[in-house]
């Protein structure tokens, strides 16, 4: 009597004749390719760290809280860029999440069936527009319009808030936030839509059975059920917003200052790297830019990981994401 145990994967069992080696090498090749993912994460982290060592040594944690960015005297601090990145991304979220969720609700609960697919297609195509084209359109169409109409109107009606004071230039934190909002709308909408679609019909029917109106059903049964998933969608959108580079660089004004007014120009981590990387004259300057990249990477990976874990923990939720 003999005991034969098969391994925990449906992999080839035992090496025997010569015919095993192509199978084994194919398996290893596939494994190697999959492990590239892990290798890439390590590579990205390592290269950014290696590139920023000088700056990390020189400035230590002060780098994160100093607002001085002075290539002439070789002193660098990341605060204005962290501020600009966070503020422009928050503006984008404030605009994109309500619009995206409302659109997702419209698409899953209300829109005539005939309209749904075309709208979905348009949103998918919107996601395909390159950042640099949004930037071009931003510079020449959106920003002038914002400057001449929307910002003026904001200042006239909400000018008592510190957010909407000061001179209007056009390129500004608010313009950057708006363009990023447009760019993250597709992902916020499509992930919210997946979440809403995963709400079981039983939920809706139960609410209807209680005599609720259509809108009440949506509010009680659908939104409350999907709340966590929608939050996940928002965090995912935030992850995208933080890393947006080209369009933001082209409309945000690129000045490292911290101002209460959203009409003032700002600067983000990604845009300062994009603008100054090839002009970095000293090693320390280049290292400081690498450290900005490291900070950006840390923030985005953290945010994305949170979003993924949230979406994955929803059983069956978020279709493509949680697969």
């Amino acid at each position: 009597m003999r005991t034969v145990t098969t391994p925990d994967s449906p992999a080839p069992v035992k090496p025997t004749s010569v015919s095993r080696w192509p199978d084994r090498s194919f398996h290893w090749l596939a494994l190697l390719a999959a492990l590239t993912l892990v290798g890439l994460i390590v590579l990205v982290g390592w290269e950014l760290y290696r590139g920023s060592r000088l700056s990390i040594h020189q400035f230590g944690p002060r780098f994160l809280v100093s607002s001085q960015w002075d290539p002439v005297s070789d002193v660098y601090g990341a605060l204005p860029f962290i501020f600009g990145t966070l503020v422009s991304s928050l503006i984008a979220l404030v605009i994109a999440v309500p619009l995206g969720v409302a659109t997702a609700l419209f698409l899953t609960e209300m829109a005539p069936v005939r309209l749904r697919q075309p709208i979905i297609t348009v949103i998918e195509l919107l996601a395909a527009v390159p950042s640099v084209i949004f930037g071009l359109w931003g510079i020449f169409v959106l920003v002038p319009w914002l400057r001449d109409h929307f910002f003026r109107w904001l200042k006239d009606s909400l000018g008592f808030l510190p957010l909407f004071t000061g001179p209007i230039y056009g390129p500004s934190m608010l313009a950057g936030g708006i363009i990023v909002a447009i760019m993250i709308l597709p992902i916020v909408t499509s992930v919210s839509r997946e979440i809403l679609r995963s709400v079981p019909n039983l939920q809706r029917e139960a609410a209807y059975a209680l005599g609720a109106t259509h809108w009440e059903v949506i509010r009680i049964a659908v939104i409350s059920y999907a709340r966590r998933g929608i939050f996940g969608a928002a965090v995912l959108g935030l992850g995208r917003a933080l890393g947006e580079t080209m369009a933001v660089t082209m409309v945000i004004g690129n000045r490292p200052e911290i101002s209460a007014s959203l009409f003032a120009p700002g600067y983000t981590l990604a845009s300062v790297v994009a603008n100054e990387f090839t002009e970095a004259t000293s090693d320390l300057y280049l290292n400081a830019l690498f450290e900005l990249g490291l900070v950006l990477l840390a923030i985005t990976i953290l945010v994305n990981a949170v979003a993924q874990l949230m979406l994955r923990s929803l059983a069956g939720g978020a279709g493509a994401k949680a697969h």
């Binding site: 009597m1 003999r2 005991t3 034969v4 145990t5 098969t6 035992k14 025997t16 095993r20």
Partner: peptide
Amino acid sequence: RIEGSLHLFGEDLYAPSVD
């Protein structure tokens, strides 16, 4: 996991050398 023996025309199909 299996136990016991299984022969085809006298040959052990679960012998370690069998592919």
